[in-house]
């Protein structure tokens, strides 16, 4: 697979993963781009020992974890201005609330749930995070439960 193909196929997935992690559009774009720079650098060394998707998600999630080192960025609006003008009216507040809830989870939970929602197999999530498959299953269940509760509480408030 060439870099161009990888970039086209995975850009959206990686971007959503980053957005779930930080809930900041500009910041997520930066992390996603950094990820693809690493992918570009590492691609010649890729040995096909794992699926290309697993490999890319590992780079992306490790890169997300490294964000702690960056100076704290003040959270901005979840959407950049240009996107806001066109699409904000059509965005369900529920989507925004979901990303906000995920970004508030502990770091590893954010990664696990984002990968799950991205339809990554649980065995692959285990291989990306280094946890056991059974562990991932339990965690996903708990995180979803937590999210459902938050959504219910949110619905009651409104």
């Amino acid at each position: 697979m060439t870099f161009d193909e990888i970039y086209k196929i995975y850009w959206q997935k990686i971007f959503r993963l980053c957005l779930g992690y930080v809930n900041d559009f500009d910041w997520a774009k930066d992390i996603a781009q950094e990820t693809f720079i690493i992918v570009w650098q590492q691609l010649p060394k890729f040995k096909h020992e794992s699926a290309v998707g697993t490999w890319i998600f590992r780079i992306a999630t490790n890169n997300c974890l490294r964000q702690i080192e960056k100076d704290k960025r003040t959270p901005k609006a979840a959407l950049p201005d240009d996107l806001k003008d066109e699409k904000q009216s059509s965005i369900e507040p529920q989507i925004r609330f979901l990303y906000q809830c995920i970004a508030e989870l502990p770091e590893t939970d954010r990664i696990i749930i984002s990968l799950e929602l991205e339809d990554v197999k649980q065995s692959e999530i285990a291989s990306i995070t280094g946890l056991s498959e059974a562990n991932i299953r339990v965690k996903i269940h708990r995180i979803k439960e937590k999210l459902s509760q938050k959504f219910k509480a949110h619905a009651h408030e409104q």
């Binding site: 086209k8 959503r16 779930g20 781009q33 989507i95 990303y99 929602l117």
Partner: peptide
């Protein structure tokens, strides 16, 4: 839960991949 999180997750509008921008960054 009755909420389809996967569906919500994927409905998030995403900026288009911008190869030119990435080449600049590279």
């Amino acid at each position: 839960s009755n909420i389809n999180f996967k569906d919500l997750w994927k409905q998030q509008p995403v900026i288009e991949p911008d190869m030119k921008d990435l080449v600049n960054r590279l």
